[in-house]
Structures are given as C-alpha cells and as structure tokens.
C-alpha cells in the first residue's frame, strides 16, 4: 500500500506542513486531520512543503479547498511551496494558481507571511 505522512514544524507565527509520499482518496484523511488540528489550535498561517510528495490526485486537492476559506476568514492563508513539476502540473491544470500562492522555495512562502505582518504593524 502506498504510504503518506505529514509532519508539522513550528516557525514562529507560521506552521510548515511537510507532505511525504502518495496523496490519494485513501490517504487524504491524514492531511485533513493535520489541517483540522492546526485550525482547531488557531494556527492559520500555513505553508505546505511538497518536496517529498510523489503523487497527488483530486481527492488530495480537495483537502486544500476544504480549509482555505475558514483559514482566510481568520486572516491566515495556505501557501504552497517546493512542488515537483508533476505535482505542479496537476494543480495548474485545475486552475489552482488562481486561488493559491505557489512558491518555488519554502522560505519564500514563509517570508510572505512576515511581510504581511510588517505591513499590518506599520499601519
């Protein structure tokens, strides 16, 4: 059976979710739980690192849609990073770049959150 796992790193105000393996209809609930736990704990500034994700189907893409609005209502965001070409192509084919910020590097995505924070504090 294909394996999938997530791990979460605390990076100050931001949490980074690392995905590993195969994300399909069978493993999507694992990612749902990860998002649920973060959101339940008031963590809304999320960066997802796809570097070790080998595969994604639409069931996996659906998880991002399930949480995004609630997270943005709480002034947070899900920013995506470090996708391989194969995974990016699927996101692209379905029009996700219109709804999500996608960065080549994890730290670019993380720094976007601190830029926003600086702007807010400067008001």
């Amino acid at each position: 059976m294909a394996e999938f796992s997530t791990s979460v790193k605390d990076a100050g105000d931001v949490n980074i979710i690392y995905l590993k393996g195969y994300l399909d209809a069978h493993t999507a609930p694992v990612l749902e739980n990860t998002f649920s736990n973060l959101v339940d704990n008031g963590r809304y500034s999320l960066v997802v690192n796809f570097k070790e994700l080998s595969y994604i189907s639409s069931a996996g893409l659906g998880v991002f849609m399930a949480f995004i609005e609630k997270i943005r209502e709480n002034k947070g965001d899900i920013k995506l990073s470090a996708m391989n070409d194969k995974v990016f192509n699927i996101f692209d084919l379905l029009g996700f770049p219109l709804l999500y910020e996608i960065y080549k590097e994890e730290n670019e995505a993380v720094s976007k959150f601190s830029q926003i924070k600086k702007l807010e504090n400067g008001k």
């Binding site: 189907s57 639409s58 069931a59 893409l61 659906g62 849609m65 399930a66 949480f67 995004i68 609005e69 609630k70 699927i90 084919l93 379905l94 029009g95 996700f96 219109l98 709804l99």
Partner: peptide, 22 residues
C-alpha cells in the same frame, strides 16, 4: 469544474472527470 464555486462551497466535485478528459 468551477473552482470559484468550490471555494465558496468548501468542496470540489468533477475535478476527477476533468482530469481524466484532460
């Protein structure tokens, strides 16, 4: 699929079929 609509509904449908056809 209509992503803007899914965004409001918090769910997706028809993505799989669209992928198959594409």
């Amino acid at each position: 699929p209509d992503l803007q609509k899914y965004y409001r509904q918090h769910k997706v449908g028809g993505l799989g079929m669209y992928l198959m056809k594409s």
